[in-house]
């Protein structure tokens, strides 16, 4: 390696460490590309995403657009091919306590009771010899969450004795108890029936209000995304490359701030005609293949678009 090469490498390394990774962003993706098979299969293309503390970001996109790949990259299960991914300015390496995760499949530990599952985070964060010891403050916090979730009666039950909704309640509280910087949720309610799903959405909004937790919520359900988030991001499956050709690879095509942080919306707003209008706009402009094919730049990033459409007082950015 020549001196010039070494110098370039050093500059590259410095860039990787310093460019666009300030600590005020809880999650920061910068020019992220992800491809497989030596670049022949491109999944993520040129993704830029900054999530600040307290945002409830919902991410929607059609099936196969790369949502799960993005999640794995944020979790640190897979490295990005190009670009940088940071949590509070530190490069993402492997899954750790800075990112909590709630999956569609609850993934609770079957050999532990609901209470033991909830206390798993505080226990695992203790050293070996203090494994059994958990602080009173953590116990009190867990009791509060469980009370709010209506799970106080089920603490001694194992996951197989709980319903799907109850398991998912425990999974959310389990993740919160580990006190992550950001809570990642991968279609957590999509396997639940309609009524349970609505209950869970309300519970999540309540917990979000209580904790002010930063959340990245991945879903394929646009209604759910717009209902829950303070900010909605839509991923497209395609982008137009430099020659004007449509190429596979997810990129952000819409980034809308929906309401002030911590402003809960009522369940009746889910069926608001204006919300439907916004959904139609996102579907037409972000997901419609014809639109994507002909548009030069899909990024909506209109903080005002929701306001214009809904004229809601709550939708102030």
């Amino acid at each position: 390696m020549t001196t010039t090469d070494k110098l370039e490498k050093l500059i590259d390394d410095l860039d990787q460490k310093t460019v666009g990774s300030p600590r005020e962003y809880v999650l920061h993706l910068l020019d992220v590309h992800k491809s497989y098979d030596d670049g022949r299969v491109q999944v993520l293309h040129d993704l830029d995403l900054k999530i600040t503390e307290g945002e409830f970001v919902t991410l929607v996109g059609p099936s196969g657009c790369g949502k799960s790949t993005l999640l794995r990259a944020v979790l640190g299960e897979e490295d990005v091919t190009e670009g940088t991914a940071t949590i509070r300015g530190s490069a993402i390496k492997t899954p750790d306590v800075t990112r909590g995760i709630v999956y569609q499949d609850h993934s609770l530990f079957p050999h532990l009771t609901a209470w033991q599952n909830v206390m798993m985070g505080p226990k695992l964060q203790q050293s070996w010899w203090k494994f059994k010891k958990v602080s009173e403050a953590d116990k009190q916090l867990a009791r509060e969450y469980l009370e709010r979730a209506g799970m106080s009666e089920h603490l001694d039950k194992k996951p197989y004795e709980l319903s799907g909704g109850q398991k998912q309640r425990i999974a959310i509280i389990q993740a919160l108890m580990a006190k992550p910087e950001i809570l990642l949720m991968d279609e957590p309610f999509s396997a639940l029936d309609e009524t349970t799903r609505e209950d869970m959405q309300l519970l999540l909004l309540e917990l979000y209000e209580q904790t002010g937790m930063t959340i990245l919520f991945i879903t394929h359900d646009l209604t759910e995304a717009l209902y829950l988030g303070t900010r909605n991001i839509a991923l497209s499956q395609y982008y137009v490359d430099g020659r004007g050709d449509e190429t596979k690879g997810a990129r952000i095509v819409s980034d809308i701030r929906l309401r002030e942080i911590g402003t809960a919306i009522s369940p009746s707003e889910k069926s608001s005609p204006k919300l439907h209008a916004l959904k139609d706009k996102i579907r037409a402009e972000a997901f419609d293949p014809d639109h994507i094919r002909h548009a030069k730049d899909f990024t909506l990033t209109h903080p005002d678009s929701f306001q214009t459409l809904t004229e809601r007082e709550a939708a102030v950015v």
Partner: peptide, 29 residues
């Protein structure tokens, strides 16, 4: 055991060896 459980255990604060000795071995008993 699903990879999701391993990832989840790490995100709860376990070390890689903690995943095995504190969670997976009891789970696999």
């Amino acid at each position: 055991v699903s990879r999701q459980r391993v990832t989840k255990t790490l995100t709860l604060g376990a070390s890689p060896l903690g995943v095995i000795y504190r969670v997976m071995l009891p789970r696999l008993a």
